[in-house]
């Protein structure tokens, strides 16, 4: 299953994704939760906490500023830019290689 949650700001994307991720994980599935938002808050809703969320965000920022190399495969991506959350959900704060236009 590869599920993307989209919608207008404030409509509940982050909350919805986090509950889906944790529910799936509780039923025994291996779950990776990807935060692709330019303002990433998924860690908060998953229950990873403020500090760890900001740590992952600062790693992505270093990547976007060219101080870090992009991961070249999935395993490296989720191990380097990820963190273990409750129920065994693996959270990764990720970025596109080419940043899209503002907006």
């Amino acid at each position: 299953m590869k599920l993307a949650v989209v919608g207008k700001g404030g409509s509940g994307k982050t909350t919805t994704s986090s509950v889906i991720a944790r529910t799936l994980a509780r039923s025994g599935k291996a779950v990776v939760a990807l935060d692709c938002d330019s303002n990433p808050n998924l860690g908060i809703s998953l229950g990873v906490g403020d500090e760890e969320t900001e740590r992952l965000v600062s790693m992505r920022q270093a990547l976007d500023e060219g101080e870090e190399e992009h991961a070249n495969n999935w395993d490296t991506l989720i191990s380097r830019y990820g963190s273990d959350g409750p129920d065994g959900v693996r959270l990764a704060v990720v970025s596109r290689i080419d940043n899209p236009e503002p907006g």
């Binding site: 700001g9 404030g10 982050t14 938002d37 330019s38 303002n39 808050n41 908060i44 809703s45 403020d50 503002p102 907006g103």
Partner: peptide
Amino acid sequence: LPGGTRQAFTGWGTWANTIVIVVEPTAK
């Protein structure tokens, strides 16, 4: 301005002299 951080300070908010940040009482 659009929600979040992408547009706010990447050249789209330079015209402003006062930035008002609207905040709800939630962690996010």
